[in-house]
Design a protein around this nucleic acid. Structure first.
Lengths: 349, 349
DNA sequence: CACATGCTGTGTAACGATACACAAGATAGG
DNA sequence: CCTATCTTGTGTATCGTTACACAGCATGTG
């Protein structure tokens, strides 16, 4: 931290001396103002202001009280990627809302993908954790469990000791894939990454079980369900994998696979973000939607609505709020997480 | 926080007893593993695992060491609004990146707009603050200053004791307004809120000094500079104020002011977000850009590029990183913050 | 062989606050 | 007027860790 030219931080004892009261009186002045007479309170406040006392030391307080007033959020492997994912951001807004209404700070644990991440989790000064979607093999999960603090996982993976908040991705994927791929000749899924390696590429007949991100896996399974239910063979469906949930990246990947004779004529994308990137590439290639190319998204963002994109609407913000409430031990809305198929002009029906 | 059925958290002393070593040895095992022989280290680790010891108590550690390992971020008045602002998010990504690379947690202080916000700042267990743009009269600023921790303000306002990181908004606004409003007959500025009241509305000849958000104020001044330099009178320029930086809100406001005979024929928007909302409304109203309506944005987002929007490009992410580095006392890149006018098809030249 | 040096392990004294129990004076009720 | 109760202020012990100083032993050096 920056150089500290300022004199050392005053302590409660010094304020007490200056105000000619006991330390406890100062403590009460901050923690339970009603416990102190108005006159004394004013004297203490004045002394504190005079000395530049910034209030009780948070570390000392948390040591003594046994709680920190912070909720921890663990965001996948690399902190920064998560901030660039609009879905993660919406989710965070929900978590933040609950935190704010409880006066809790929201601490984002600095995950980098290095082995030291487990230490970072252990060192986090928080009273509980919300874990944003990560892969089955991510070691931070057990680090979270090891703290024995209350914690909730969003999206996945399942963990023996931790409750999970997630939509039925497989069922939703089944529904939207039925719209997206119906009657397609060259069907494709535009997918989230399969695992923490986040390799970009196009696969034929990819076994969903290869994906260690639960969300990716379940959506692939749902797509397979729908395709096979329509009489197709899974290996006919190509799976284009984006390393991140970013329109820009989808656009550049799509620009490549839209060229050539085997360009898809129907794509189920795992997010609106990816779908919109694809649509930009399609527009540039002179392809009409849904004429030449049927597209579906996922999430139900404003941008999807503006683009007339058929999508699976879900409320990530509400899900974030729900996770936070669960961690706080509140009675959150119960029941499964809602989703809804929204039909628009990017599909034929 | 949730009920805590688990047995109380073990302490270092208990681990020490179980491993038959002194407490200090346990402490060193966590804080300076090299200080301990490999054999002893293994014994301690084993004992800790057996007892379910999650590592040193963060509160105690921070009390003793005098630092918390967390960087605080104060995000305007209401935590949630800030998370919904894409600019704020980009900025946060930059802060987060620096935090992650230093192994620091990023704590978002729960601001709600209530008077208790000052307490929240004082109670935050952090080693320094980054303050995201707020209004001149926001009391959290003095709360931040009162902690005497290192702190940096982004965007504004200026504060006697705190360094500020901001672009020369006035100069940039001058440049982009010259493009946007050149030759306009019914010029308009689509503006950020003026103050924390965040009132939506359309004004004629608004005095820039009325805005208590520095960014808003300076950009209005720049627009006035440009308009007057072109021989115009400031009161001729209407100022449409959005309560938030949201495309959706801009769209609904624009839908209203684009009707009628006094609809603007040139608009300088204070963000790409607002500009894109306006363009959606314009498209729906059957107006051609730039034929019927010249539009400029601000920020240089991907979406602006995709939409062919003339804009002031700036790197908010880099600015976030810079703020964090300054708080950490690092030698950050010096010099003024860069911005660049990017001309595209939404303007005539 | 005497002595300097490095490696490991150990006690003790804080770090700054709050829970708790208690005391003195004020107020109220019968 | 005396006891019951409320209000307000006060010590003391303790939360769990780490800085510091020191001790014992092994190794290296002249």
């Amino acid at each position: 931290m920056a150089k500290d030219p300022s004199q050392p931080r005053p302590t409660m004892a010094e304020v007490a001396r200056a105000a000619k009261v006991s330390v406890m009186t100062v403590s009460y002045t901050y923690a339970q103002p009603d416990r102190v007479s108005e006159r004394t309170r004013a004297r203490v406040r004045e002394a504190a202001a005079r000395l530049g006392y910034p209030g009780p030391h948070p570390g000392a307080r948390s040591l003594r009280r046994g709680r920190t007033g912070n909720l921890g959020v663990v965001l996948g492997e690399h902190l920064t990627y998560a901030f660039e994912d609009p879905q993660a951001t919406r989710f965070l807004a929900g978590v933040a809302e609950v935190c704010a209404s409880h006066g809790l700070g929201l601490t984002i644990v600095p995950i980098t993908g290095a082995p030291s991440d487990a230490d970072r989790v252990a060192e986090a000064a928080v009273d509980g954790f919300v874990v944003w979607t990560t892969s089955d093999d991510d070691p931070v999960l057990s680090a979270v469990a090891a703290t024995a603090l209350p914690a909730v996982v969003h999206g996945g993976p399942h963990h023996r000791k931790l409750p999970i908040v997630a939509v039925d991705d497989r069922a939703a994927a089944r529904a939207v894939a039925a719209e997206a791929l119906a009657g397609a000749r060259r069907p494709m899924v535009l997918s989230f990454p399969l695992d923490r390696a986040r390799t970009t590429g196009v696969h034929n007949g990819l076994d969903p079980a290869e994906a260690t991100f639960r969300v990716t896996r379940e959506r692939l399974r749902g797509a397979r369900d729908a395709w096979e239910a329509a009489g197709g063979q899974w290996p006919q469906v190509r799976v284009a994998v984006c390393a991140r949930n970013s329109a820009r990246e989808a656009e550049s990947l799509a620009t490549a696979f839209l060229k050539g004779s085997d360009a898809p004529d129907a794509v189920m994308a795992m997010s609106d973000e990816l779908a919109l990137g694809l649509m930009r590439a399609a527009a540039r290639a002179g392809l009409a939607v849904p004429g030449d190319l049927v597209v579906t998204g996922w999430d139900g963002t404003d941008a999807a609505a503006a683009a007339g994109l058929t999508t699976v609407a879900q409320d990530l913000r509400a899900q974030g709020a729900r996770c936070a409430q669960l961690v706080l031990g509140e009675e959150a809305a119960t029941g499964p997480i809602e989703w809804r198929l929204v039909l628009r002009d990017s599909t034929r029906r």
